[in-house]
Design a protein around this nucleic acid. Structure first.
Length: 573
RNA sequence: CGGCGUGUAGCGCAGCCUGGUAGCGCACUUCCUUCGGGAGGAAGGGGUCGGAGGUUCGAAUCCUCUCACGCCGACCA
């Protein structure tokens, strides 16, 4: 490809609202342009990278025996009503009507569609297991799209759905997909980790997320320092403390704490540490009652865990202030577990705290020297906090460290949630109808592109892993428009490299060298070959890799051989 | 959904407070010089100032409404 025939839309400046590096670089390099909130056009340069990701995903899915198909982006409401998600899904599901007034939605995912296909096309156990996948545009009407294509409303996803006669077969395919995902992310050249995850509202039991590690990641991942345990902090268990509760040593007393509402305020005023304070959160429960959750002041409530308490309403929501005042008699900020008439659940760590500080259930008052058993009945002990760095690993080996990750893949065992709702069954060997078990496996293809940049860049721009680069080689002639020798040499080299199977970007613009260097580095081409008068005199070409800063001179006739050794993959002309 | 903020040339911004014929940098076009790390000069093209309504002799500027976009919050106990 010649730059003169290519939309190289690089720019020096970047819109002020691009917060993270991948978003800035994708705009600067001319990979994407925003059309509206969460909607992006992929320019030719960006699309080339996207296609590289897709190709690798496709190859590995095919290799794992999955079959590609393509389902509509627009989906009829009837199927969503059948699975009850038309009501459950909320405003992220973009709904619309056609000219006849029939309801449709833009698909945020395709469980209903594939299950509908499966119930019509799969009749016999002999057809199982089957795994179907597609690479499709999805739409989720995010409250707050941000970070460019990282959290866009419209995005490209590879989603796969497998169908099985029994759990054993599902387990087998799940393991195969786990391995396939590892192969895919290995080939993409990314630093990633498979982590255990909560399967959330989608249902099912087993679930893993694949995270690309990056500071800008929106998820927190807990790792053991002594084993391969890794889990989303939403899921990671905070083990019961091994120490027992110390004996009470203080008398309970009331202290005035006017206008001190936060743990920080109270601990500062009373001169005690945050872990010596207990906070009491009031949430809405089932049956329209309120529920109190007690945590240590330095810990955070884990909403996913809290939702698992049967008495707590799902989704988790905080009680509104008026109702708290009416029921408890004080405003949030002065609540404590002593003398509460509503159900109280206490976190494992808070349950072994002695002589603690908490709200007195009277505005402007706190209690100190409070002790379980003596001053208030022991509440039901639960695990409702989010793990923190230094907690023991849930697998019993080592302690946890916390890192940020970008979720680029997610695999689930769905079980029969959708197949039951849509009555998708096959006949088994005995001629008996069996509801199929399902698995579901997603990769955020467009997000992978952004994640790769988060992990691979420097001050000059993007540094593509070989497998993702939009072009392999940047061919830069020095002053070609002045020197006929350079023009001839570079045209010849361009042909030779292409004939040898390399994807080459020839910068034939009438630009100064500095401009060419800067642009090629910004867009991250892994290999650079410079052709100039000086080199031609000596019969050499100059090579430089994007990652390392040393230039080297090579005899012109050895360049093909050299590039073959440098690159592992070729994509053809 | 709530709070705050921003809409002026393709991009980044000034002008608005204090109303009087719309500017700067980058980018773009042409020419000259320069030519191995985002060059210099000269001459150009490009904007119904987000939209609607109002006040005024006169509105980018003041007022009202509206749309779009962005940031923050939704863990305060």
């Amino acid at each position: 490809m010649r730059v003169s025939r290519f939309l190289l839309a690089t720019q020096k400046e970047v819109p002020a609202d691009a917060e993270i590096i991948s978003h800035q670089l994708m705009l600067r390099a001319g990979m994407i342009r925003k059309l509206a909130a969460g909607l992006y056009t992929w320019l030719p340069l960006g699309l080339r990278v996207l296609r590289k990701v897709e190709a690798i995903v496709r190859e590995e899915m095919d290799r794992a025996g999955a079959q590609e198909l393509l389902m509509p982006a627009v989906q009829p409401a009837e199927l969503w009503q059948e699975s009850c998600r038309w009501e459950q899904y909320g405003p992220e599901l973009l709904r619309m009507q056609d000219r006849h007034g029939r309801d449709f939605c833009l698909g945020p995912t395709h469980e209903e569609i594939i299950t509908d296909l499966a119930r019509k096309q799969l009749r016999s156990y002999k057809q199982l297991p089957s795994n179907f996948y597609q690479i499709q545009t999805k739409f989720r009407d995010e409250v707050r799209p941000r970070f460019g294509v990282m959290r866009a409303r419209e995005f490209i996803m590879k989603d796969a759905y497998s169908f099985h006669l029994d759990k054993a077969s599902l387990d087998e395919t799940y393991q195969l997909m786990h391995q396939t995902y590892c192969r895919i992310f290995d080939r993409l050249g990314l630093d990633y980790r498979p982590v255990r995850a909560d399967s959330g509202a989608i249902g099912g039991s087993l679930s893993h997320e694949f995270h690309v590690l990056a500071e800008s990641g929106e998820d927190a991942i807990a790792f053991s320092d002594q084993s391969d345990y890794a889990a989303n902090t939403e899921l990671a268990e905070a083990l019961p403390p091994t120490e027992t509760r110390p004996a009470a040593s203080e008398e309970m007393s009331t202290v005035a704490t006017p206008d001190q509402h936060s743990i920080e305020d109270v601990s500062r005023q009373l001169g005690v540490s945050a872990e010596q304070c207990l906070k009491t959160l009031i949430v809405n429960g089932e049956d329209d009652q309120l529920i109190a959750l007690v945590l240590r002041g330095d810990h955070e409530l884990n909403p996913v865990k809290a939702e698992k308490i049967p008495a707590v309403a799902r989704p988790l929501s905080f009680a509104d202030e008026d109702r708290i005042k009416k029921t408890i008699g004080c405003a949030p900020g002065s609540i404590g577990p002593v003398g509460l008439s509503i159900p109280v659940y206490v976190d494992r760590s808070a349950a072994i705290t002695a002589d603690f500080v908490c709200g007195a259930n009277t505005d402007g008052r706190h209690l100190k020297g409070v002790n379980w058993e003596r001053d208030l009945p022991e509440a039901e002990i639960v695990d409702i906090r989010t793990v923190v760095e230094g907690d023991p690993s849930p697998d019993g080996k080592g302690v946890l460290t916390i890192k940020r990750g970008i979720e680029v893949g997610h695999i689930f065992q769905l079980g029969t949630k959708y197949s039951e709702a849509l009555k998708a069954s096959v006949l088994d060997e005995n001629g008996k109808a069996v509801t199929m078990s399902m698995g579901c496996y997603g990769i955020g293809v467009s997000r992978v592109v952004a994640a790769a940049i988060e992990q691979n860049h420097d001050d000059n721009g993007i540094i593509w892993p070989e497998a993702l680069a939009p072009f392999q080689i940047a061919l830069l002639p020095m002053n070609m428009h002045k020197s006929e020798r350079v023009r001839e040499a570079v045209e010849k080299l361009y042909d030779e490299l292409q004939n040898a199977g390399f994807d080459v970007l020839l910068d034939d613009r009438k630009e100064r060298p500095g401009v060419m260097f800067a642009d090629m580095e910004l867009i991250g081409i892994p290999h650079r070959i410079v052709v100039g008068e000086k080199g031609l005199d000596k019969g050499v070409l100059e090579y430089k890799g994007r990652k390392n800063s040393e230039k080297q001179e090579l005899p012109a006739e050895t360049i093909i051989e050299f590039m073959n050794a440098k690159t592992t993959t070729k994509t053809g002309v």
